[in-house]
């Protein structure tokens, strides 16, 4: 009986591996192979090894195109990602902490607003109107605030759930020792939030870095372009240079891939939170 199960595991496993290669690996291999081809060969769309490897040439060409537009875009995207995630984490942790610790009649209101933030699609043009009034439209700080705002709800939910696992006695002991609320939160509670902070940082960093709609609406113009926007603009400009386009895709996919390799457990934890509790 057990041997039969084992054999079945091997058979089903082999079929799954073959299918997974066809469905999931081939597209990624295709990106890599196309990025390694010459322009003429890439335009054939074939799934073949390049007859002439041009990986390095394509890489330097993509990096130097239009005076290093991609390099600047990488810097912009990094700045936007880092700062918006910092804002999100600090602000959402403060909300999640007080929301979980203090029972008040405001809790239902705050909970409702958090859920609304998850469900309601942002109203695009009125947001642009508000940003223009504040002088933040089409600026990097503007997009940082936007990304931080749109990510808040998800972060608050994770922090609220995690704070409930930290014993309240710790806060009380610290109060008796004479610590104020800021000292308690940043000195005592925040270090204990480390696991959930890592989860939030990784998940939101990937989300902000990969976001296309936000920069498209709120950060138009070439000099402030983010990586996703350059990729999108490339698509319409470099019509016959599929090799460069796919090199760009390859470059842009590397940062999230590195994140995944180092933090895959935290990413999984973040994505599946709420799966058990509903």
């Amino acid at each position: 009986m057990r041997r039969r199960a084992k054999i079945r595991g091997i058979v089903v496993g082999s079929i799954s591996i073959v299918l997974s290669v066809i469905i999931f690996i081939v597209p990624f291999a295709f990106i890599f192979l196309t990025a390694s081809k010459t322009a003429a060969e890439a335009a054939l769309f074939g799934f073949t090894l390049p007859t002439e490897w041009a990986l390095v040439e394509n890489l330097t060409e993509v990096l130097t195109i239009r005076n290093g537009l991609i390099v600047r875009a990488f810097i912009n995207s990094t700045v936007i990602t880092v700062l918006s995630v910092v804002l999100m984490v600090v602000f959402a942790a403060m909300v999640g902490y007080v929301l979980q610790r203090r029972r008040s009649r405001w809790n239902p209101v705050v909970n409702f607003l958090v859920l609304a933030g998850l469900i309601v699609p942002p109203a695009v043009v009125p947001t642009i109107w508000v940003l223009q009034t504040l002088g933040l439209f089409a600026t990097i700080p503007g997009l940082i605030f936007i990304q931080a705002t749109f990510g808040l709800s998800f972060c608050v939910l994770l922090f609220r759930a995690f704070v409930s696992t930290i014993p309240k006695e710790l806060d009380e002991a610290a109060t008796i020792d004479g610590a104020g609320p800021l000292r308690i939160f940043f000195g005592v509670v925040a270090p204990l939030l480390r696991p959930v902070i890592i989860t939030v940082v990784v998940v939101q960093a990937v989300a902000v870095f990969n976001d296309f709609t936000g920069p498209l609406y709120f950060l138009p113009g070439d000099e402030n372009a983010t990586v996703q926007l350059t990729l999108y603009n490339f698509q319409s400009q470099t019509l016959n240079q599929w090799n460069l386009l796919f090199m760009d895709i390859l470059l842009i996919t590397i940062p999230p891939l590195v994140m995944y390799i180092f933090f895959n457990r935290q990413i999984v934890a973040g994505m599946t939170s709420g799966a058990v509790k509903g």
Binding site: F24, V206, N210, T253, M259, Y260
Partner: peptide, 12 residues
């Protein structure tokens, strides 16, 4: 392998 596409941007 099943999870990896989640990390690639929609544009890519």
């Amino acid at each position: 392998v099943v999870f990896f596409p989640v990390l690639v941007s929609a544009i890519g």
